[in-house]
Design a binder for these strands. Sequence first.
DNA 1: CGATTGACGACTGTCGACAGTTTTACAAAC
DNA 2: GTTTGTAAAACTGTCGACAGTCGTCAATCG
Lengths: 224, 224
Amino acid sequence: MASSPVAPGGFIQQQNLVEQVADYLTQAIIQQHFLPGERLSEVQLSRDLGVSRAPVREAARLLESRGLLISKPRRGFFVRALNAVELEDVFDLRLCLERHAIQRLSERYSSDAERALKQQVEVLCEATASNDGTRRIEEDLQFHRLMIHYAGNERLLRAFDGLTHELRLCITLITKTHEAPDTIATSHFKLLDALGSGSSEACREAIDYHIGVARDFVVSSVGE
Amino acid sequence: MASSPVAPGGFIQQQNLVEQVADYLTQAIIQQHFLPGERLSEVQLSRDLGVSRAPVREAARLLESRGLLISKPRRGFFVRALNAVELEDVFDLRLCLERHAIQRLSERYSSDAERALKQQVEVLCEATASNDGTRRIEEDLQFHRLMIHYAGNERLLRAFDGLTHELRLCITLITKTHEAPDTIATSHFKLLDALGSGSSEACREAIDYHIGVARDFVVSSVGE
DNA sequence: CGATTGACGACTGTCGACAGTTTTACAAAC
DNA sequence: GTTTGTAAAACTGTCGACAGTCGTCAATCG
């Protein structure tokens, strides 16, 4: 979407303001225009965006529920700063969710799901080749999101989405380092192979390795 | 638990209108003063509670993030109605989280944790004997919350708390049916035994059985 | 020179009001 | 009796304003 902070003047007014502000804030946080720990002023934001404080507050509360902001009473909203421990917790929970998802999916693996996942791996490979780090990560997450989607538990998917919001907090840190493109592809193909084999042990092994690599990669990027 | 340093006795008057409204709404929904699917009018609520619409809106958004309400644009907030499928999804996710938690806990089972859990089982037994259905369920959930707390992943605990909010949606349905008191006690003691044995297989087996029973119990209560 | 205190400024929590939209009520036509 | 069209009522989304509170910083005191 619009990556640069737009000047308030002629902007489209199709969606509700809260979502627009939430999108703006999310992008601004991800792109580190607001640094971790930084305080956000409702008044300043509403002035900059040309809206009143009400939608700003609601958007901030939304981002708080997603873990991107934290609010201190009478102090306002602050950009969430993830430390190494919290990040490990996030990946531990992600492992928990994806283990369960791939287990459930292997029990009901349809040709539909297989086709969609294979296509997404191709999109991911393409994104990797394009050298757009952010897009690569988004397509990577999208693959896992699809996997959980086809696992057939909507509530599980919601939990995963909640995690990805937090992962995006340190997305720029991750994009700074470059993983070998072929590694990414083969790593995901192994997941597909495990699913195709129908072996729940193979699935668990594959996802454990996959998430473990991602965790080590991210945690080492953050704990500098 | 470190997260709720509740001051005992008459503590400071809550200064947060939003929290007060949220608590009121939560209780009203749990006690079915607002029925599932019912629409909540911001104006009416603010009149009834003697506050303006702003805190009501924020509280409603909070409850929306907890899954107790859902909002439709330009329509307002509605009490969430869980169908059987969603409820099964909730229990499937709960199984996912608790499997992981008991696994992690068995790896780091301390005498501290053991003591706290045993004490909580006693509290639970007491609550069961008191014939207060709501309190029994709350103490039951508290046991599981403690278990996940001692598993050492704060993020995992948050995910569990998000689930319990949804479970409370049908708490009255559950309390209407009565489980055998001794069954509840022994079921939790088995979890403690599994943890004490240090066997991850035993832990998994115990939690699978435990959550499975709870799921069947609740789903059969709802799917009238 | 360091600690304390008091005023100033900025900000959040809360409020009432207005505009546009959705729902409802009602009447007319078939 | 049913359907359709219209108008009123109610509601949400958004706005600007006010009051209480918190942090800052300079002036004062030890």
